[in-house]
Design a protein around this nucleic acid. Structure first.
Lengths: 341, 341
DNA sequence: AGACTTTCGGAAAGTGCTTTCCGACACTAA
DNA sequence: TTAGTGTCGGAAAGCACTTTCCGAAAGTCT
């Protein structure tokens, strides 16, 4: 590996001078010597060792990003927005997909060891208070080591947070669906311990209550937060005896698509047989048929916001929480068939 | 920041001993002192500075991953497979989404500066020979600096490559479609300069030729490799006068979905009005209706393979190329309607 | 008991960079 | 001519680690 010393030797200058030329610092170097140095560097194919530079200067250009599953379009969209902001700033984005229970805590710890400049945690935290407390402590340690941190999701970590308004969005959706004429609902509610899922369920229930519509406990089906989870939950609804609900709300689009597949398999038309709504407005899912009523979250924008919180020079005295509203998008999947149908 | 020296002081041992205890090296330390050191480290909340360690040892645990667009499910699926392999090995995955022309080259250069252990380039390279040559040179520099490199896509960089068999897959698809009874085809061919797109087009044409079916040049529509590109290209087909083709092949699933949306807007049923096939078998798109005939690529598996090529200790004398076959999946979107329909 | 090996702690020399501090030189002003 | 003020190159002291080398102590063998 060619080192700065090699460059200095070849240019017949001191290590100091070579460093000054090549590391755009404060001090200038005479154009004569500077020329010799840059030329020598080019001839040798020299590339500064950023690790060593980071050690010497005590600051790195790395930012860590934690997501649950990068292949999930929800996360990858946010990550994309984030990368778009980080890239022009010459920051190195390190990404972790953490399936495991304690993965987030471990990764934040790793980022602290790497002396990363910032860490961004994306994703719906569970209600497992032990895990949250552990993560919270790790983040606090990261902060006190001089790093910055932000979160996209629930405001549980005591850091700057981009908070999607899950409850309000679901509430607005519920009201819109009632306005469309639906009266009896079922909810594919996702996992009990997932806060995001719970907020959406609660918000939906609130929205129904606003219009004095009741949601029976038996019409709330819990399951996985995935396509297959939606498929299974819809199966459970179909298996129950009694009439189908007017409309089914899946707490995310991916589950809604699973539910749709199940309905299709059962030969039940949407929305004629039953209405179906999702949440998120995942872009790759906008072309399913019938088009899904959903609540749009500006995912890429949320990633950008998170990044910009981190990269402001001023360190806020208190953690900021930026609410991001969802927008109800009514599409065909919930169009109420004309009465007497 | 608490440093190793602080730990050593508190444990009343030398820096050396503290280092030996905390950095699982070769030499052992007596359990008495070792205990004092670990306790002191715990009390101080010490975390080793991995950057400094990397400088001292001359080896890092970073691997760089370059993709075109992380929010594209094709790339994020591969990346997910890759991360799954890298994570248990305590490797730090740094990801770049490079929209720009020269972004890949820049990122590999950055990885060289970071003294990354390996770099993995995912994505369909263009046929722009200047850009490819630049990237190739940069990768060569990275290799000669002692790094490992691998590529998922076309074998153009002179490194270990996971090569999806685009041509063979498209050829098999074409033959299957002809067998199904289709005779006149159109292809939504993506960008001219994209090698992946071109290989799929060429393979498709070959497959048709195997059965003596011709593909008219006017039935090949170039456009963007995206959902909207598919939508536009399908518009062009609809705008042309003359009868519709029996079947349309979009060179990837995302384009096929765009085409499907266009057909739906035009009120043309699939497959009754026209057949439609894609490529990739993107998992989030498996529930579109009608289900898309496509060629499945094991994306996550490809990511895993790329990672495993990199992490083998033996350095191959010649770059290995591992072909990954696609599997034709016939679904409803190309079911030939009974004749006389 | 003496020679030989093994175990184990610490001083010091790296690792590749930045930055402070010093001194040399030139240039301006009195 | 001389003191004052910049400008600019280089020696050396960091940065937070690892690792080599050395020497002391303890254990083993004859």
């Amino acid at each position: 590996m060619v080192t700065l010393q090699d460059v200095a030797d070849r240019a017949q200058v001191s290590l100091t001078t070579a460093s000054r030329v090549l590391s755009d610092g404060q001090r200038r170097v005479g154009s004569q010597l500077a020329g010799r140095v840059t030329q020598a560097a080019a001839e040798l194919g020299y590339t500064a060792n950023l690790q060593a530079r980071a050690v010497a200067t005590g600051q790195s250009n790395m930012v860590g990003v934690v997501v649950h599953d990068i292949s999930d379009p929800y996360f990858s969209s946010i990550a994309a927005g984030l990368i778009d902001v980080a890239h022009p700033r010459q920051l190195l984005v390190c990404l972790s997909s953490t399936p495991g229970e304690d993965g987030e805590r471990e990764y934040v710890s790793l980022m602290r060891a790497q002396r990363a400049r910032a860490v961004i945690i994306i994703g719906s935290r569970s209600t497992d208070s032990v895990a949250v407390a552990g993560l919270r402590a790790e983040v606090a340690a990261f902060l006190s080591a001089g790093g910055r941190a932000a979160c996209v999701g629930q405001d549980q970590l005591g850091v700057d947070t981009i908070r999607p308004e899950n409850a309000a969005g679901a509430q607005a959706l519920a009201r819109a669906l009632v306005t469309q004429g639906h009266r009896r609902f079922a909810v594919l509610a996702g996992p009990r311990e997932l806060l995001t899922a719970r907020d959406r369920l609660d918000g939906f229930r609130t929205g129904l209550a606003d219009w004095s519509v009741d949601l029976a406990e038996t019409d709330v089906i819990h399951g996985a937060f995935t396509r297959d989870g939606g498929y299974e939950a819809m199966s459970a609804i179909l298996a129950a005896d009694g009439p189908l609900p007017d409309c089914v709300f899946a707490v995310n689009d991916v589950m809604a698509v699973g539910a749709l597949a199940r309905l299709r398999a059962a030969g039940i038309p949407v929305p004629a047989g039953v209405g179906l709504a999702g949440f998120d407005d995942i872009s790759t899912l906008r072309d399913v048929f019938p088009p899904l009523t959903t609540v749009r979250l500006p995912l890429a924008r949320m990633g950008e916001l998170a990044a910009s919180l981190i990269f402001t020079d001023v360190l806020p005295s208190k953690p900021r929480v930026i609410p991001v509203p969802g927008e109800v998008i009514l599409r065909e999947s919930t169009t109420k068939p004309p009465p007497g149908h």
